[in-house]
Amino acid sequence: MEKIDIIESRAVLVPVDNIDTDQIIPARFLKTTEREGFGEKLFYDWRYDADGTPVRDNILSGQEGVILVAGNNFGCGSSREHAAWALHDAGYKAVVSSSFADIFRNNALNNCLLPVQVSEEYLAKVTETLGKAPDTVLKIDLGEQTISVPGAGEYRFEINGYKKECLMKGYSDIDYLLSDKESILRYENSRQEGGKR
């Protein structure tokens, strides 16, 4: 699996609160049973109108980078992991917001997409900075758990030790679970003895 250590990039700024997973990837693109091709569908209805014509001057136009800076409560709504797949497939390595929906956060972490949760104040500063200077290069250091933005300063973000190690070393949850089937069998046996199902 891929690893994350330091991410340095310009940012794509989308200062909208409550960006739900239906915005990130509309439901009609979830019919495929494959795992590929979601990057092209990212924010599709922002980028194309009803008949598939590109929307000129949409919120993403002219922006480039592998860090997405969004408003509060990013990734709310549907549990579709396709949202994390779409962001990852489109090249994003991190999303910065003042809060993430729980399911999206897990999906992101399981796909080597780093959710960087910062305070509302810091997010406001970053948003303002990027508004004035869109070429600003952000630096996210997972080891140090810091994000630094010239003009907005540095912020230390939280992530639990287990998840951090997974991301830095390229481990996945399923490998962890499979490595300790013994514990699972022991738990099942203890429950059967207790008469529960």
Binding site: S79, R80, E81, H82, A84, I103, N106, N107, N110, N111, S172, D173, I174, L177, L178, K181, I184
Partner: peptide, 12 residues
């Protein structure tokens, strides 16, 4: 849960 987690539950 997401699909990676569906996979985990199926497997373990």
């Amino acid at each position: 849960i997401g699909t990676s987690e569906v996979e985990m539950v199926l497997a373990t």
